[in-house]
Design a protein around this nucleic acid. Structure first.
Length: 828
RNA sequence: GCCGAGGUGGCGAAACUGGCAGACGCACUAGCUUUAGGAGCUAGCACCGAAAGGUAUGCGGGUUCAAAUCCCGCCCUCGGCACCA
């Protein structure tokens, strides 16, 4: 008997599938049954594919193969997200130019991805560093600009001292750089931003309409951070003792944002952030100015994480000035403290120590007045809930919820919705990315001319001049000067103004990597032959209409507020610009779990990284794939154990043996119950794959095989059903066996284009089965009954059983509960 | 602190709508076979107990004929957010 020679068979089918274009969809017809099956494309930054990537790809590929067999024309493309800081950092580490490293990685990644048996549409692959690709990344930037969604602004931004570039808020995770983990600093710099906040409300609302993993939806909701409240104005006065002239008093106002305007009567002081305008204002004489400045400077020096790590609240009163509470016209002191953030709301708060934990802590430390205005808590203790108001003049007795609007009105404030989300900082002072396609003209600026009224001197590179090619720069190292290495290349930045034709300067920053990946799912549809299709081209528009949005998207949850938020935003902008007829690019998204090894995350420093190549070489791609899917539910992830793969190897070997033996039974030779099990298995595997519960699908197939082996012979049809069910998991071996067991003379078409088996609902139940008999809820016996039996008859039979009879002896049966087909519970 | 997901044999994990807890697999044990290699086959395998039987799904209560599953109160682990007013 021939042993299964996986390396030979895998090689053969890889070549055949490629040659026969088995996994290429038919774009020439617009068919209703399309299925766009997408996985997050990888960063080719490391030495090769990580087993975690392999896990994600395999899980997605199984789903795609399942859909293809279900009659869909499946589009499952693959590409590389090889532009950007992660690839550049890797190139820096190994000392190779990123453009060269890209070629090496490309070859290695694609080879690995094919070896493991993924059914990709190889002809449509793309790389984000391809000028034909980033031409459109740049076009996208100019489109955002034209639509008023891109702007330049100076403000405190996140700066990674190690990567020597600015970062977006999303990339400064807990005050640390998403790439290298360095502590992020704050710098005042002029940068490019995308106005994602314009879509904050839509990004939030649409979450309700999309079918995504719940934890990702929650992460996005939290990140967008909608709060409903009010903006209230507090007038500022100098202390009576210090008023010098009439004009200096009472013109300046501080606006605060609060979610609890109902507690305004309890606002006993005001706090401004160290960056607040009030501090530098010359309108007031702050008597302890020196002291205040010292505090402010120290606070500004601290990084965000330093500020938050120090739990003890600090601050200092601005002496000589007071604020007036608009509810009751009482004077309250003003403090500056770094627990108030400049980037949120108005950068100033009204402090209500009786009903806010932070204010409470601060007030205790500085001995400030604490006035309860909401009843419900204990006297003198912090209470953050709602309830009837007290100490609030005419509002006493009113419920706090109702009072929110009333008190806002009374104080002359306005109701306001505040988002936590801030605009997307898009520029990077690095080399390996798409140059931002903008031109700055000094002459036009002086004349006040420009494409956008509020940004004189700035022009987008005209579409005909795209792409702005990234020049080959030998010394691509970031310098930390606040400028990209491109700023040293005169031939690059010297250009002509698209408006006046005079000398002008190109933008030398490149765009964030996440812009590259914000539209790649569209890019795959452009890649026919040689990027012949362009945005605005009508046949491309048709293709987008036919294939978008993506039907199933799978990827890591770590991109919850990075890629997955940006890509939604860009789709919304393109939708509003009329290019897309949907707002949500991924109506269905599932986050796969993480693979761990020996109980901890895989990392090189721990030495527990799994090299997928070794396993494919030793056990074959089919066994490796199937094992990855068997070890735990796909959406949970799990612990990779070397020994576990042996169980799968045995299983596949047994399938091979049975298939190769060529001894199949006539159908009528089989036991009838076997047919029922086949139908049950088809049902279970179909359901489990649809739910991404691959582990239980595999165990169902194991049960079927175990039963097959107990039979003397199994019919060819039943064996073929098992092959079909197994095909998405073990594509190579099932293909080989499919050809072998098919009776047709000559060439048989691929199993991966065969029809997924169906089950007959009438053939799911056996005629007779075991039923359990319980006494007071404890199982005491079981016996066989037939489907047609009368309940009374079953009860009588149960009581007659010897194991049951001894319990019944001399006792009254209170009642009998009969769950048909399951059990009988006799209550004594 | 807040939000989310979890906690079941030696291990990875199953369990429909509340209905026989531990499917399937790994490891292990015994036997057979052996071309002695991570091979194959058969049987066993939650715990206590000689057995009858009893006890078991993080802990403590509750509802129910019946709870891993529902309710209340705790504990622990992992993931995310974190002075967001």
């Amino acid at each position: 008997m021939k042993k299964y020679d996986f390396s030979k068979i895998e090689k053969k089918w890889t070549e055949t599938w490629r040659k026969e274009r088995t996994y290429e969809p038919d774009f020439s017809v617009s068919r209703g049954k399309k299925f766009y099956n997408l996985m997050m494309f990888p960063y080719p930054s490391a030495e090769g594919l990580h087993v975690g990537n392999m896990y994600a790809f395999t899980g997605t590929d199984i789903y795609g193969r399942f859909k293809r067999m279900g009659g869909y024309d499946v589009f499952e493309p693959i590409g590389l997200d090889g532009f950007g800081i992660h690839s550049e950092n890797y190139a820096l580490k190994v000392g190779v130019h990123p453009a060269e490293q890209a070629k090496t990685s490309e070859e290695r990644f694609y080879k690995q991805l094919e070896i493991v048996g993924n059914g990709f549409a190889w002809e449509e692959r793309l790389e984000t560093y391809d000028p034909e690709y980033y031409k459109f990344t740049q076009w996208l930037f100019t489109e955002m600009w034209r639509r008023g969604l891109a702007y330049r602004k100076k403000q405190p931004v996140n700066w990674c001292p190690s990567c020597k570039t600015v970062l977006s808020d999303e990339q400064a995770e807990n005050g640390k750089c998403e790439r290298c983990g360095s502590v992020v600093e704050k710098k005042d710099l002029e940068q490019w931003f995308f106005r994602i906040t314009k879509y904050a409300d839509k990004l939030l609302k649409n979450i309700e309409t999309i079918d995504w993993s719940e934890k990702v939806k929650i992460a996005q909701r939290n990140w967008i951070g909608k709060s409903e409240g009010a903006l209230l104005k507090f007038q500022i006065t100098n202390d009576k003792s210090q008023i010098n002239s009439e004009s200096q008093s009472s013109k300046f106002e501080i606006e605060v944002f609060t979610t609890r305007p109902d507690t305004l009567f309890g606002a006993t002081y005001l706090v401004v952030s160290p960056e607040h305008d009030l501090i530098s204002s010359s309108q007031f004489s702050i008597s302890n100015k020196e002291e205040v400045e010292k505090y402010v400077n120290e606070a500004k020096k601290k990084s965000d994480s330093d500020r938050t790590e120090n739990k003890e609240k600090t601050g200092i009163e601005l002496k000589g000035i007071k604020a007036i509470n608009p509810a009751n016209n009482e004077e309250v002191p003003i403090f500056v403290a770094d627990y108030v953030l400049s980037g949120y709301g108005t950068g100033a708060i009204m402090a209500v120590p009786a009903h806010d934990a932070r204010d409470f802590e601060f007030a205790k430390k500085f001995g400030l007045k604490i006035i309860s205005v909401v009843s419900g808590g204990e006297e003198g203790i912090l209470y953050e809930g709602s309830g009837p108001l007290i100490n609030s003049a005419q509002f006493n007795g009113m419920n706090s919820e109702e009072a929110k609007e009333k008190i806002t009105k009374h104080a002359g404030g306005t109701l306001h919705t505040q988002f936590r989300l801030r605009d997307w900082l898009i520029s990077r002072q690095r080399y390996w990315g798409p140059p931002i396609p903008m031109i700055y003209c000094e002459t036009c600026m002086k004349l006040g001319k420009g494409e956008q009224p509020d940004m004189p001197g700035w022009y987008a590179v005209p579409e005909k001049d795209l792409p702005v090619t990234l020049p080959f720069v030998k010394d691509f190292r970031p310098e930390g000067t606040g400028q990209s290495p491109l700023a040293n290349i005169e031939e690059f930045y010297k250009t002509k103004c698209p408006s006046c034709g005079g000398d002008a300067r190109r933008e030398t920053d490149v765009s964030d990597t996440f812009l590259d990946s914000a539209w790649y799912y569209i890019g795959y549809l452009m890649r026919f032959g040689n990027w012949k299709l362009e945005i605005g081209n009508s046949s491309f528009a048709e293709r987008m209409k036919a294939w978008l949005p993506v039907d199933m998207y799978i990827g890591g949850a770590e991109h919850s507020v990075l890629h997955l938020l940006y890509v939604r935003f860009i789709a919304m902008a393109l939708h509003d610009a009329g290019y897309l007829d949907f707002e949500e690019p991924f109506p269905k998204f599932r986050a796969h779990g993480l693979l761990i090894k020996d109980g901890s995350k895989m990392s090189k420093s721990k030495g527990n990284v799994i090299n997928p190549d070794d396993y494919v070489k030793n056990f074959g791609a089919d066994a490796f794939r199937t094992y990855l899917m068997f070890l735990a539910p796909f959406e949970y992830g799990g612990d990779f154990r070397d020994q576990g793969i042996l169980g799968i190897t045995r299983f596949l070997d047994r399938v091979w043996k049975m298939g190769i033996s060529s001894e199949f039974a006539e159908e009528r030779e089989e036991e009838k119950d076997l047919e029922i099990l086949v139908h049950q298995t088809v049902k279970k595997v179909t359901h489990d794959i649809e739910a991404l519960q691959y582990n239980t699908a595999i165990s169902a197939m194991m049960i079927l095989l175990n039963e097959f082996e107990k039979q003397k012979k199994v019919s060819r049809e039943h064996f073929k059903t098992l092959l079909l069910l197994l095909a998405p998991f073990a594509p190579f071996m099932t293909e080989e066996l499919w050809q072998h067991v098919s009776l047709s003379n000559g060439k048989q078409s691929s199993i991966h284009r065969a029809q997924w088996p169906e089950y007959d609902p009438k053939k799911l139940e056996k005629d007779s089965f075991l039923i359990a008999v319980q006494i007071n809820g404890k199982v005491r016996a079981e016996f066989e009954i037939s489907k047609s039996m009368d309940p009374k008859e079953i009860e009588a039979m149960a009581c007659a059983l010897p194991q049951i009879g001894k319990f019944l002896d001399g006792k009254d049966i209170k009642k009998i509960i009969h769950v048909p087909g399951r059990l009988l519970n006799i209550v004594l």
